[in-house]
Structures are given as structure tokens and as C-alpha cells.
Design a protein around this nucleic acid. Structure first.
Ligand SMILES: [Mn+2]
Ligand SMILES: [Mn+2]
Ligand SMILES: [Zn+2]
Ligand SMILES: [Zn+2]
Lengths: 147, 147
DNA sequence: CCATAGAACAAGACTCAGTCTCAATACAAC
DNA sequence: GTTGTATTGAGACTGAGTCTTGTTCTATGG
């Protein structure tokens, strides 16, 4: 994936406009934070990094951005939802979930592996009459800091 | 996996005893429900199937059973946690998550596919200093009823 | 038998991440 | 400038899930 940072912002603005939404400073601050972090962020992370963005606004922005396909929710192994940029703005990847501290780490699979996953997903779906849209592979275990 | 229903109950009782817990009728009713359903159950499912088990007791039983490795939490694509029997009492499998109604369907992978997954998980983990314990593959899409 | 300690239970209070409401502002288009 | 619509922040609200508490079982042994 060779999406440049600038083109990402253009794309975000375009998608918001499609829904008559503006790319305001608050929304942009959140997108920039997610870009900068490169790892899923919790609301606590957002608040810590963007104290000027009220919690209720941060939640609303994340919901709006998710609605236009810019942000994706990530379920971790604790009570807190995380958020990251949608895969079509970054690249397809999977997650290592720490069962001790709840942290989430991105990892990128090889193409050969993804081919095998797609084939298996197609097989599952055919069996069950399911229409697949995407998949996620989570590895549970202990992160480097927690081992 | 050839675990018979009887041997599952023996195993559950043994694991509870290890923690000085008894295999009481309420706990057994929940294990039997999960066995019978063969699909992840929400608290609403448990309440509907076992009206004699109070909600607070059902939650406590599920927490206790999870604590001794008999039950596993399953995150769906809605606000409701689901529960299923731990994989070592049934068999390793993956999930089809409906993004429309939230339903979760079990699917069993081929051995060849699981070998590929294990290899990839080892590779991810080595890269990140992560100690893997298990993995889950979720397919998002629309179930047969919702398409 | 009865006594006793610890596990189990039911009911309901409580928590708090996440959502919703509403009044006040900022924009964009004309 | 006027107007219609999107945006924003503060705080009220929701509800799945957890905790507390008083009571009831049940295993053990004297
Ligand atoms: Mn990610
Ligand atoms: Mn399952
Ligand atoms: Zn960790
Ligand atoms: Zn469905």
C-alpha cells in the first residue's frame, strides 16, 4: 500500500462529503492521531493525546468516521473498545491481543497466507449460505512487556 | 474430537473440584444448554432456555465456568457477549459473525488450513516477541437469514 | 443424629463505557 | 446579511455486566 498521508486526508474528506459531513479540526485531529499511532487506540488514548477534544465529541467523531468507512472498531481482550483506520486506508493486517494488559498489536500477513485464508473463508461461507465481507485473525497470548 | 457427553460432564466436575467448586444443578443446566445449542449463547438465550436460573446466577456461573476453563467468552458484532464451551471440550473451530443481526455460527477448518495458520501465528509472534496461546478467525458478513 | 464451616444462591444495588439530548455555534450557499 | 444545516460540548441517560448482602444448601465429623 502506497497511500500517502496527504491522499488519506483527501480521501477522508471526500467520504465525509458524500454524507454531507465536514472534515472539521476535531475529526482531523482524530484521524491524524490514528495515523500517527499506527496501532489501535482506546478512548483513553484519544483523551490523553487530544485533551482539547471532549469525550462526547470524540465518541461522536469515531462513530461518524466509522459510518463513512474511515474508522474501524477493534475488540480487544479487556472492557475497552479500540479504534483504528479502516484497512483500505492502510493495509490488511491482523492482531496480537494480550490477555494480560489488553494491548493490541498489528501484524501483516504474507500474500500466500492470505490466499489460504480466502480459500478457507469461501469454503466456510458456501457451507453455511453466508455472504462474507471481511475476516479478522486474532492471536491471543502475552505481549513482550507482559511475558 | 470424540469426547462423549458423559465424559464432558465428568471433566467439568473435575475441573470445578480442582477449585473447590461444586457441579450444581444450575451450573450443569448451563453446560447442558451450551452442549445442546452447539452455537454460542447470549445471556438472553440462557434466560429464555433456563427461566428458573436467575440472571445474576447465570452470569456468576458463566464467570465461574470460564475461570476453570470450561466456558469461553465470544465477542460478537453487537453489544452482547456470547458464551460457548471451551474448545478442548468440543473442537477447535472459527466463527461467522453476521454484521446485521449479530448471530454467530461455528465452522470447522481443515487440518491443512490450521497448519498454515499455526505457521503464520508463529511467524507473527517471533517478530513481535509475543507468546501465543490461541487464535481465532472471525468472518464478518451476512448470514443466510439476513442476506 | 446434630453442629459447623464453607460454598451456593437470589435479589437488587451499583458501575461506567458508551449513547443520546439539547441548546448554543460555526459554516456554506445564496 | 440571512438562512438552513452541520457541529459542538455539557451533561443526562442507558443497560450489560458486576458486586454486595443476607440467606440457604451441603459436605464433613463428632
Ligand atoms: Mn489493527
Ligand atoms: Mn464457537
Ligand atoms: Zn500485555
Ligand atoms: Zn444475520
Amino acid at each position: 500500500m502506497t497511500t500517502t498521508e496527504g491522499s488519506i486526508h483527501e480521501l477522508v474528506e471526500h467520504r465525509l462529503r458524500q454524507s454531507d459531513l465536514r472534515y472539521t479540526p476535531g475529526r482531523r485531529a482524530i484521524v491524524e492521531l490514528l495515523l500517527r499511532r499506527g496501532q489501535p487506540a482506546s478512548i483513553a488514548d484519544v483523551e490523553a493525546a487530544l485533551p482539547q477534544v471532549p469525550r462526547s465529541s470524540a465518541y461522536r467523531h469515531l462513530v461518524d468516521l466509522q459510518g463513512v468507512g474511515v474508522v474501524r472498531r477493534v475488540a480487544a481482550n479487556d472492557d475497552f473498545t479500540r479504534f483504528e483506520l479502516a484497512e483500505d486506508l492502510t493495509e490488511h493486517h491482523h492482531h496480537l491481543l494480550c490477555t494480560s494488559c489488553g494491548s493490541v498489536t498489528d501484524v501483516t500477513p504474507t500474500e500466500a497466507f492470505e490466499h489460504a485464508v480466502h480459500a478457507m473463508v469461501e469454503e466456510f461461507s458456501r457451507q453455511e449460505g453466508f455472504a462474507p465481507l471481511s475476516h479478522s485473525l486474532d492471536v491471543l497470548g502475552h505481549c513482550q512487556r507482559c511475558r
